[in-house]
Design a protein around this nucleic acid. Sequence first.
DNA 1: GTGTTTTACTTTATTTATGAAAGGAGTGCA
DNA 2: TGCACTCCTTTCATAAATAAAGTAAAACAC
Lengths: 137, 137
Amino acid sequence: MLDNTDKNILEELSKNSRLTMKELGEKVHLTGPAVSARVAKLEDQGIIEGYAIKINPAKLGLFVHAFITIITQSTNHQPYLSFLKSQEQYIIHHYKISGDGCYLLECRFPSNEKLNDFLEALNHYANYKLSIVINEK
Amino acid sequence: MLDNTDKNILEELSKNSRLTMKELGEKVHLTGPAVSARVAKLEDQGIIEGYAIKINPAKLGLFVHAFITIITQSTNHQPYLSFLKSQEQYIIHHYKISGDGCYLLECRFPSNEKLNDFLEALNHYANYKLSIVINEK
DNA sequence: GTGTTTTACTTTATTTATGAAAGGAGTGCA
DNA sequence: TGCACTCCTTTCATAAATAAAGTAAAACAC
């Protein structure tokens, strides 16, 4: 399905998706139009879903990175889900999981105070276990 | 530090980082050169760290998305860390955390079989708790 | 209040990249 | 051998990026 050139294209675009087609072509030993056609194909196949930027969260004042495992008390998750919708600003990802909880939240907060506020509000809807990220890697 | 135009720029680039500066300019009501200068500034400030692609993992055959909480037995984490380095293909993120474990791993595997192989190997170095992602959101 | 500097922008002109079209090389197949 | 298909290159018209110059408004010194 994907040959080595395609894999190289994905790798180069992962590192820098704003390469020009000419630059990308040079990296994978193709001309601009050739690599452009391949990228279009990868988009059509849905392998490339989109193009995004990497933002430094600390520079935006988001200093606290937390994972919160949710254990809902009630079988009706709707109140919890509605609450979450009101807190979208802090939520990066929200996964439904099997294992030690019902959901896993990945969040970023400006401060421990805001995290504390969030947890107090959350506690009306669910129990939780908190993990704070100290470091990546 | 950031005005509304900058926030709009970050939002638009998060949705599509391959916009031309001319298109981006139209969205935030600036000319190409003006928005180009702002983006360059955001890069210099380290707010924009880079440009990446969103890849559909399932289309690359990565069907199993898992979070693994690591509880190391020994105080010497080095064997575990070396083991991880040999398994880089599966690791998306590796966080050092406070809370219910020492580390949190975010991984993607082609299949439950590969996940099982990974866990059996992992078990020589650490205890773990496994959460498998059923769904995002 | 006046003159100066700074900042952020627009306009213009040159350079560079994109994208469409045509053509060629290699592969599979009847 | 001849045909169809895929994937590529080359060429060229169009569009975008970028550098440079000029403008307008705000900040500041005196």
